[in-house]
Amino acid sequence: MNLLLNVLWVIFGGLWMAVGWLLAAVIMAITIIGIPWARAAFNMARYAFLPFGFAAVDRDVHLGEGDLGTGPLGALGNVIWLVLAGWWLALGHLITAIGLAITIIGLPFAWAHLKLAGLALWPIGKIIVPREMVDYRRPV
């Protein structure tokens, strides 16, 4: 089922949003200073391309230990990301979600775009894992 949903996702808006994430990652990587943001954007581009069957979770909760991306520096990095690229990626996901929500068939894809819009605003400190690896008993 995940394969079918991912194929339909690519057709109905997933491809162009994944390209948006890749563009943001490349621009960040070119600046050299933006390499930490580029890494997060590349991870999110992969998730934006094939979201079904995967989940975005807090890295410190999933791994059980904190790091630079999950502490105060990660929060500062997210604020910088939000100003530089996060708002327009979130806007792209939101516009796509509204377009897909018009039809009943598009509702699951609209919901996935809304989840990605939230990630677009605050991606540092997140990790993409197969849905089977998510421990739903712990807060995410």
Rank of each mutant, 00 (worst) to 15 (best):
V7D: 07
Y136M: 01
A24V: 10
N78Q: 09
M133L: 12
I27S: 05
P51G: 11
F109A: 01
I30Y: 13
A97C: 09
F12N: 06
M133V: 00
P72L: 12
M1D: 08
M17R: 15
L114K: 08
G92F: 12
P51L: 11
L121V: 12
M1N: 05
I11D: 04
G64W: 06
F109L: 09
F109C: 00
T103E: 02
V129K: 09
G118W: 03
A90D: 12
L22W: 13
P123F: 08
L73A: 06
A48S: 15
N2L: 01
L107I: 14
V61R: 13
I102E: 02
L68A: 10
A97R: 08
W122N: 11
V140I: 01
L15K: 13
Y136K: 08
I98K: 09
L107P: 02
A97M: 08
R138Y: 00
L4V: 11
P139R: 05
I105D: 01
A25F: 11
N6I: 03
G53L: 07
P108T: 00
F49M: 14
G14N: 13
G92M: 15
L73V: 03
L89A: 13
D67E: 04
V79A: 15
M1P: 09
F42P: 01
W16D: 15
A45P: 10
I124N: 02
P108G: 01
F109P: 01
L119H: 14
N43Y: 07
D60R: 11
